[in-house]
């Protein structure tokens, strides 16, 4: 299939994709497709099979069964060509700490066989993009976590990839560093780069993804846009009430009768309704005085809880 043909259909498409490690099934027969220019997310807790799926796409892991094409090619048959199309940002930064910022970009470009002249020009552009111009001569070990992450992303862009794959891009970063990173990723999206993101942060998925699949135990639980998922699997608003740990369960029958659905967590009760201010009023009227209460909008966290009965980050 030529590049032209591949640009018509989906960039990536998987059917019945499976990966087993002995008796353990990491990915349990999943179907999905990713369109060109889309920002596509894999949301799920640790061990859901997100990273495994990413590695199969990136031609660094073989599948046990099923079909997958990346840019119209089979990763197992055209590994180097597919990898030349991809920019990979792994979960753990694997920069060369003994090299400078600039040299890290340079050597990575050389891995793809790019010319020195090309890379030298590209480095200037990437340093600006990653906001690391002033750090160009600094050794990587001296950089902050956020800077390292930005450098890893810049490094993945040296080959001008069509698809950028980010595995847990902001795990371990402080809120400010996360926002800077999200901003950089938005810019890439605007330039037409297809983004593939795994995350267990619902706010990240909501911020970055046009469409996502919710994964748990190797299976796809749901697929839609973040807003679509919330609409389908949750209410507009959520009321969080706390009565103290032993009474949360004790009141659950009474609370359940007042709204569409409740979730009893060890430390709080989540009550789902489209009008939670009114719901809170009812709770108080019934003589159940919560020690704290909070009305908020539904998030992907609630979707996940609904689908799996578990919280995302435990």
């Amino acid at each position: 299939m030529s590049v032209k043909d591949a640009s018509q259909g989906p960039l990536i498409s998987a059917k019945g994709l499976r990966k087993e490690y002995g008796a353990f099934t990491a990915v349990d027969g999943i179907d999905f497709h990713v369109n060109k220019g889309e920002s596509f997310g894999f949301l799920g807790p640790n061990g859901a099979g997100k990273s495994t799926t990413m590695r199969i796409i990136a031609a660094t892991l073989t599948r046990t069964a099923g079909e997958i094409t990346v840019l119209g090619k089979d990763p197992e048959k055209s590994g180097p060509e597919i990898r030349a199309h991809l920019g990979v940002v792994p979960q753990q930064d694997n920069l060369d700490n003994s090299l400078t910022v600039e040299d890290n970009l340079y050597v990575y470009g050389r891995y793809f066989g790019l010319s020195k002249k090309y890379i030298r020009t590209k480095i200037e552009e990437l340093l600006t993009f990653a906001q690391l111009e002033e750090k160009r001569g600094v050794k990587v070990e001296a950089l902050s976590g956020g800077m390292k992450r930005r450098l890893t992303i810049a490094r993945a862009l040296v080959s001008e990839p069509e698809i950028l794959m980010l595995d847990e891009p902001t795990t371990g970063l402080d809120p400010q560093a996360r926002h800077i990173l999200w901003d950089r990723l938005f810019r890439l999206k605007e330039q037409g780069v297809t983004l593939l993101i795994t995350t267990h942060y619902m706010d990240e998925a909501e911020q970055l993804c046009d469409r996502l699949i919710v994964m748990d135990k190797g299976k796809i639980m749901a697929e839609d846009s973040p807003a679509g998922l919330i609409k389908k699997y949750s209410t507009k608003e959520v009321l969080e009430v706390r009565f103290g740990s032993d009474r949360n369960a004790q009141y659950s029958d009474q609370l359940r009768a007042m709204c569409e659905r409740i979730e009893v967590l060890p430390d709080r009760v989540l009550m789902y309704s489209d009008d939670c201010e009114e719901l809170l009023h009812q709770v108080v009227l019934a003589g159940l005085a919560p020690t704290t209460s909070l009305v908020r909008r539904s998030s992907l966290e609630d979707v996940f809880l609904r689908l799996t009965g578990r919280t995302l980050v435990e």
Partner: peptide
């Protein structure tokens, strides 16, 4: 869509013996 240098370089080795094992770099 134009093909990047990295892709062109990788595709040049297509069908050679040892592709996938050795990229001559």
């Amino acid at each position: 869509m134009s093909v990047s240098d990295a892709v062109r370089i990788a595709e040049n080795l297509k069908g050679r013996i040892g592709e996938g094992t050795y990229s001559r770099r």
